[in-house]
């Protein structure tokens, strides 16, 4: 942990970054995002199993806020969001100072200690405990027990459902939605300056939390995430109503992978799936 602090301190002292988006612990030992602007601030920087937030979500707010690089502490999974944002031309690699951390898994429930039962599902599928690229690397990687994928079973069950049963399943889930838009706000890939629900001339999507309004919102968000979700699971963690949102985004990612051999946020040079056309793309869905 000292190593991470040291790297950040040096980066700020030597002006390699004008500030660093990182994690700190508050007085209740709760890990939370903060901005380190001075070498003194960097003293507070930590990384641990509770460092759940995907800090790439803060880029849109800071990207035009001054001269110099933006520093960011990233886990391997968060780096996919950084890569995806570069692929989607939202930010330039040269504008970033990336401090990668070797991650040994993060918790699902931040009120409890890290354990095999309290590890995010995404950690099971994490292919690189060390971020694939970075400007500096900190933390020692520790082996940890892989969590069970309790979502896979539910996903298989939903796949077997008839369309009516599926409608019933999702209607019950979306009914809980209160339209707080925490899913959108924590998502690093939801960066539209004006979300479709905020477009009122005409009003495309009902803003009310009615069955229709909730369904429209959650389905349109899932569509906008098709093949774009990088799997940080922040939407589901943030949802105060416990809607299993990653079932949708994860399934879409699986379809993008099986149908187009594409996974978002994996390559700085590969164009984004949603913005490209290939002659080898399947056309059998056009009937």
């Amino acid at each position: 942990m000292n190593e991470l602090k040291q790297i950040c301190k040096e980066a700020l002292t030597e002006k390699k970054a004008r500030f660093i988006i990182a994690y700190r612990e508050d007085k209740n030992k709760k890990t939370k995002p903060f901005i380190a602007r001075t070498p003194e601030d960097a003293e507070q920087i930590i990384f641990n199993h509770q460092a759940v937030n995907n800090l790439a979500v803060y880029f849109p707010r800071f990207k035009n806020s001054g001269e110099g690089k933006i520093g960011i502490v990233v886990k391997s999974c968060d780096l996919k969001a950084v890569t995806a944002l570069i692929q989607e031309n939202q930010i330039k690699r040269d504008d970033l100072f990336i401090i990668g951390v070797n991650c040994s898994g993060v918790v699902r429930d931040t009120t409890m200690e890290f354990s095999n039962d309290n590890t995010q599902i995404k950690c099971k599928y994490c292919q690189a405990k060390t971020p694939p690229y970075y400007d500096e690397l900190a933390e020692e990687s520790k082996e940890f027990e892989m969590p069970d994928d309790d979502q896979a079973e539910l996903m298989a069950r939903i796949e077997k459902m008839s369309s009516d049963e599926r409608l019933e399943f999702w209607s019950a889930e979306f009914e809980k939605c209160i339209k707080c838009y925490a899913c959108r706000q924590v998502c690093p890939m939801c960066y539209c300056e004006k979300c479709i629900v905020e477009k009122s001339e005409p009003q495309w999507i009902d803003t009310s939390s009615t069955a229709r309004g909730n369904f429209s919102w959650n389905i349109i968000r899932a569509f906008h995430m098709a093949g774009r979700c990088i799997g940080c699971h922040e939407c589901e963690r943030a949802c105060p109503m416990d809607i299993p949102l990653t079932l949708l985004t994860r399934k879409m990612g699986m379809v993008a992978s099986s149908e187009f051999g594409y996974r978002h946020g994996m390559s700085l040079t590969e164009p984004a799936l949603i913005g490209t056309y290939s002659t080898s793309d399947k056309e059998d869905f056009i009937k």
Binding site: P33, F34, I35, I178, Y181, A182, R184, V186, S208, A238
Partner: peptide
């Protein structure tokens, strides 16, 4: 300048709050 700088601007806080009472009035076709 810094108190709320990490706030992401969702409404989790307001919507779970027992006293937050702001509302919007919309017409829906």
């Amino acid at each position: 300048d810094t108190a709320g700088e990490m706030c992401l601007g969702c409404a989790q806080c307001a919507f779970v709050c027992p006293t937050c009472h702001c509302f919007d009035i919309v017409d829906e076709q």
